[in-house]
Design a protein around this nucleic acid. Structure first.
Lengths: 240, 240
DNA sequence: CGTTATTTGTTCGTATGTATA
DNA sequence: GTATACATACGAACAAATAAC
């Protein structure tokens, strides 16, 4: 990682690239203080203005936050979560350079509430299987998901899921080899105490709430999802 | 609005429908206390359980919020904002029964920052026109938008906009008769003091941040938008 | 501060109509 | 037709949280 002084690429840009890389690879830990301008001028052997230009670029990219009189701080990493017609959790995150993971925190059967029954197109009170899971990226929790399935159509889904640990695979056992996203709604609220605990957020941080319905090729609803993302760690990208 | 006791439709459901209608038509104002169970049993001449069933349905639909020992409260109305390939602000809101409006709060020309130039596919420092506006629905502010346009391609856009008060119309003068959404990103943060003031939010409420790029039929970027929605008043619905 | 009234939450029991086996 | 199950509706009582005094 050496600077190339002869090149057509500006010095400040090369420095910004190096520092950006270091932030991505956690050399500078999120939330912690970033090296001061004076430290960086020493390290790269350039003028303070050159370093400032590089840091300004990082700030503009949202990688760091500069506070007059206090210092520069590394922003929390933001994970890019793509939402489209064929959203799958793990497949999704693998597109970035993050290691995805699930942790099942509950599998129950209960009668459908108004909202759930309406979303799934079943009668209120019909039994639904609720799979609750925490989604992780690089070992950090980023989402709490409530996934509802009509139990009449998928009997024993909870047990099956606990064995294969994949919704897509579990559904294959019922002959569902393909499903698509029918509707998606995005909201935001302040994290509940439960969110705060599960997502290891600080108090009073915002959460992104995504409500969606998946349908089979015949247009029949097969699942209703309410996913709550840690707002400070996730960015949704909507696929055209 | 009378109850039909003989009908196949349950009493509690009829009551929920009536009360839901009243909430939509602002008979019960948002944020204010909803009639108590005892008042409603009196009004409808039914058992308290029947009223509770109806109110539970309203709560499940998100129309009211029930607090033990305090009472039931009408939730803030949520505006459904559709996002798709052809998102237009006013056209969008007119689909609901809300009266849309704009208020321009600033029109300036400035050099493109890193993010803006990258989004618009121009060189950093190239002049861009920034139109800042507050979006309103039914007279209440729901969004603060920063709209960036490449000034070289649209010279005099700011003045033109102030005359026609419509981005779509202003762009027509430059021969742009159609544009589509190229990319959309959704994030959330806590409102800044400026957000709080412009959106008339309470302090520390979340905002939904939508970043998007519009392109002309040739795929050339014509605008970059950063819109900040009052989180408690807006729900985004993503069109498939 | 404690007391009291208000309001919602919960749990008994009872009766009735409807659909299903 | 009978038995069973289920949802609806009503009645009464008590528990728990809150607000007002």
């Amino acid at each position: 990682m050496e600077l190339n002084r002869g090149s057509a690429i500006p010095l400040w840009y090369q420095i910004a690239e190096i520092l950006g890389q270091e932030i991505s690879s956690d050399v500078h830990r999120a939330g912690r203080q970033f090296p001061t301008e004076s430290l960086l001028t020493g390290r790269f052997g350039v003028n303070r203005h050159t370093v400032r230009r590089a840091v300004a670029s990082l700030a503009d990219q949202g990688l760091v936050r500069v506070e007059k009189g206090r210092g520069t701080f590394v922003e929390d990493h933001v994970i890019d979560y793509r939402i489209g017609k064929r959203t799958r959790f793990s497949a999704n995150l693998l597109l970035g350079d993050v290691e995805p993971g699930h942790r099942l925190i509950g599998a129950t059967e209960l009668p459908a509430t108004e909202t759930v029954s309406a979303a799934l197109g079943i009668a209120r009170g019909d039994p639904v299987t609720l799979l609750e899971a925490v989604g992780e990226a690089n070992g950090h929790p980023i989402s709490v998901a409530a996934n509802y399935f009509p139990s009449r159509r998928f009997p024993g889904l909870a047990d099956l899921y606990e064995r294969v640990l994949s919704i897509t695979k579990a559904l294959e056992s019922y002959g569902i080899d393909d499903y698509t996203r029918q509707s998606t709604k995005v909201m935001t609220t302040i994290a509940t105490p439960e969110d705060t605990q599960l997502l290891k957020q600080r108090k009073n941080m915002p959460v992104l709430v995504v409500e969606s319905v998946d349908v089979d090729p015949d247009g029949l609803a097969i699942s209703y999802h309410v996913v709550r993302f840690a707002g400070e760690r996730v960015q949704l990208t909507l696929e055209p």
